[in-house]
C-alpha cells in the first residue's frame, strides 16, 4: 500500500508499506524526518503529529482517550489532528495522504 506525506515547502513523499506497522513506524522506517517519535509510540510525546484530511478520517478513525488529552497541548492543532503512532495501518488506508505540521 502507498501513503503520501505532504509538508509545506517540500515535495510530496510517497512511501510503500506492508505488514503490521503503525503510521508512525512506517514514516520512521522510510525516513520521514519530521516524525521524531520520541516516545516510540507510547502516546506520550506528541512528536508524531499529523493532519488527516476529512475524507480519510472515517477510515483512520478520530483521536480518543489519552491521545486526545495529549493533542490538547500540541501547537498547531487542527480538526484532523492525529498522533500517527495511534493509527494502525490497514489495507483500507492504501492511498492515504497526510499532512505534516509546520516545523
Amino acid at each position: 500500500m502507498k501513503i503520501t506525506f505532504k509538508a509545506a515547502g517540500s515535495e510530496d513523499r510517497t512511501i510503500e508499506v506492508h505488514g503490521s506497522l503503525t503510521l508512525m513506524e512506517a514514516a520512521v522506517r522510510h525516513g520521514i524526518d519530521e516524525i521524531l517519535a520520541e516516545c516510540g509510540g507510547a502516546c506520550s510525546c506528541a512528536t508524531c503529529h499529523v493532519y488527516v484530511p476529512d475524507e480519510w478520517l472515517a477510515v483512520t478513525g478520530e483521536a480518543g482517550g489519552m491521545e486526545l488529552e495529549l493533542l490538547e497541548c500540541v501547537e498547531a492543532r487542527r480538526p484532523g489532528s492525529r498522533l500517527s503512532c495511534q493509527i494502525n495501518l490497514s489495507p483500507a488506508m492504501d492511498g492515504l495522504t497526510v499532512e505534516l505540521p509546520p516545523a
Binding site: V28, I35, L36, A37, E38, C39, G40, S44
Partner: peptide, 11 residues
C-alpha cells in the same frame, strides 16, 4: 519514561 526516550528515539 521521558528520560529514556531521548536516547532511544529514531534520531
Amino acid at each position: 519514561r521521558n528520560v529514556l526516550n531521548s536516547s532511544l528515539a529514531p534520531r
